[in-house]
Amino acid sequence: MTFSICVREEYTGDGGESQHRFGVAVTTRLPGVGTLCPFASEHGAVATQALVNVELGEKGIEHLDNGLGVEVALQSLLSSDDGRAQRQLHGVGADGTFAFSGDECLDWFGHVEGPNYTVAGNLLTGESVVEATAETYESSDRDEPLAKRLIDALEAGHEEGGDKREDLEIQSAALLVETTEETVMDPYYNDLRVDATETPIADLRETFEKAAQGYEAALEKYEDDVKEDQNADA
């Protein structure tokens, strides 16, 4: 009922140190997907879907936070899940990627793994949905915010047909981005949800744009306070 993307990126922080960011984005032809499928922390990103088991996402992130590798963490959870044949679970950690699609997921279903990213989907119009999502992410401009690029990737999959259940008009989309870098003010656009709409990707993009504008306005208004906090940390 869903397609999603999880990514890990290395970048140089404001202080010149090497940092990592993790992101996950998802959309489906049902409301409230942001409450069920995407999970992220400064140690990784996970998406749980198909016949959703929220514990797989919650415990997956918990295991990553405790230092387990992503393959060990997620495979161990699936091994003890009696419903795994109907699950999709994928994600990225500090050390690699993992993707699983159970044999009893509904067509079209499948996943792809690339350098530092995974994409998975089920009940899709075809394989081209996950391929377009992956290709758009791979070709994205790393100078742009990851949140925006995740929306671009979802949009590409959506335009390829996305979720095939056209009789379900009420849809949803969500994204999460976490980073190892400590910032005085986290960008407002890194944790967004559109819970019930007929135009999930367009609405998520509009929400991102408004949140980005609000973030810039807040930085400008409280610039002196931010500088004082940065100086105090230094």
Rank of each mutant, 00 (worst) to 15 (best):
F3G: 05
C6E: 04
E9K: 07
G13P: 07
G15S: 07
F22P: 11
F22I: 04
A25D: 00
T27M: 11
L30G: 06
V33P: 00
T35I: 10
F39C: 04
E42L: 00
L56F: 04
L56K: 02
G60E: 01
E62R: 02
E62I: 05
D65Y: 04
E71N: 06
L74G: 01
G83E: 14
R84G: 01
L89Q: 03
A94K: 14
G96W: 06
G96D: 12
T97L: 00
S101W: 05
E104W: 15
L106M: 14
D107Y: 05
D107G: 09
W108E: 03
H111E: 01
N122K: 03
N122T: 10
L124T: 09
T125F: 06
S128K: 15
A132M: 05
A134Y: 05
E138K: 03
S139T: 12
A147T: 07
K148W: 12
D152Q: 11
A153D: 07
L154P: 02
E160S: 11
G161W: 06
D167P: 14
L168D: 06
I170M: 15
S172L: 03
S172Q: 10
V177F: 08
E178M: 05
E182I: 14
Y188H: 14
L192Y: 03
L192F: 00
R193W: 00
T197E: 14
I201H: 05
A202C: 13
D203K: 01
R205S: 11
A211H: 04
A211M: 12
Q213T: 08
G214S: 08
Q230D: 09
Q230T: 13
